[in-house]
Amino acid sequence: MSKYLLNKFLYTVDRDPELVERYREDPRATVAMWETEYANRILNCVDGESSTWLRFDDTEREALAAHDYPALFELGAHPFLTLTLFIAMFERDHEPMGFQTEYARRLAHVSMPYPDIAT
């Protein structure tokens, strides 16, 4: 499991409107494409710099493909990153503040201390 890679996915997808829409419409294919094309790029470096070892495990891949933000939170994904990306994807489907309320409701079962979000 890589909290770093989960957070990198959430961060990079959230910053690209085309990826946000692609992830909303076809999450499984977007996760597979991102893992192949983006996972091993080094953030904030010149093109061509990359690593070779980063991959999602099956649990992470499935949580991402299912838009399962409670599971992502439990896996250690940063709650700010999940909230901002999922607001971008689903706020339009709810009344004002409706998605944020739904997010809080679906995470209400999590009690302190929260899962470790350090990477």
Rank of each mutant, 00 (worst) to 15 (best):
K3M: 02
P27W: 02
A65S: 15
I87G: 00
T36Q: 10
W53I: 05
G48L: 07
Y69N: 12
Y11S: 11
E74H: 14
L85R: 05
Y23N: 07
A29I: 01
D57N: 13
H94F: 15
S51N: 05
P79S: 04
D93A: 11
N44W: 12
L5S: 12
Q100I: 11
L43P: 13
A77S: 13
N44A: 13
M33G: 03
I87C: 10
M33Q: 07
A118G: 10
V110I: 15
V20G: 08
T82L: 09
P113R: 07
V31H: 04
A32S: 12
P70I: 03
E102G: 00
T52H: 06
T84Q: 11
Q100V: 13
E37Q: 13
E25S: 13
L81P: 00
T119V: 11
E35T: 08
W53Q: 14
K8D: 14
R92P: 01
R24N: 06
E18K: 14
Q100W: 00
H109E: 01
R22L: 15
F80L: 15
E74F: 02
H78Y: 12
F99V: 05
R41E: 06
L81D: 11
E91H: 02
E25I: 00
F80C: 07
A77E: 13
R22Y: 04
K3C: 02
D47Q: 07
F86L: 05
P70C: 03
T30N: 01
T101A: 14
M89R: 12
C45N: 09
W53A: 11
F73P: 03
R22M: 12
E74S: 15
R61V: 03
A108E: 10
A118E: 14
N40V: 06
R24E: 07
L72R: 06
G98N: 00
L85V: 11
R105Q: 06
R41F: 01
R61K: 13
L43A: 11
L10A: 06
Y11D: 13
R106M: 08
A88P: 05
V31K: 00
P79T: 08
H78Q: 15
L81A: 10
L5T: 07
A32T: 10
A66F: 02
T101P: 00
V110R: 12
R55Y: 08
G98H: 01
L10R: 05
E49L: 12
A88R: 15
F56H: 06
H94K: 03
F86M: 12
L6M: 07
Y38N: 09
S51V: 13
A104V: 07
W53F: 10
Y103V: 03
Y23C: 04
Y4D: 09
I87Y: 09
I87T: 13
R28H: 04
E60G: 06
A88M: 06
E35L: 07
Y23E: 09
A77V: 11
L19K: 13
R22K: 11
A71T: 14
Y103E: 02
L19T: 09
L81K: 11
A118V: 09
D68S: 08
E18P: 02
A118K: 04
E74R: 15
R106S: 00
L6K: 00
T30D: 14
T59G: 08
H78M: 10
R105V: 08
R28Y: 04
C45L: 11
M1V: 08
N40Y: 08
Q100M: 08
D26E: 12
F73Q: 08
D26W: 00
L83T: 07
R22D: 11
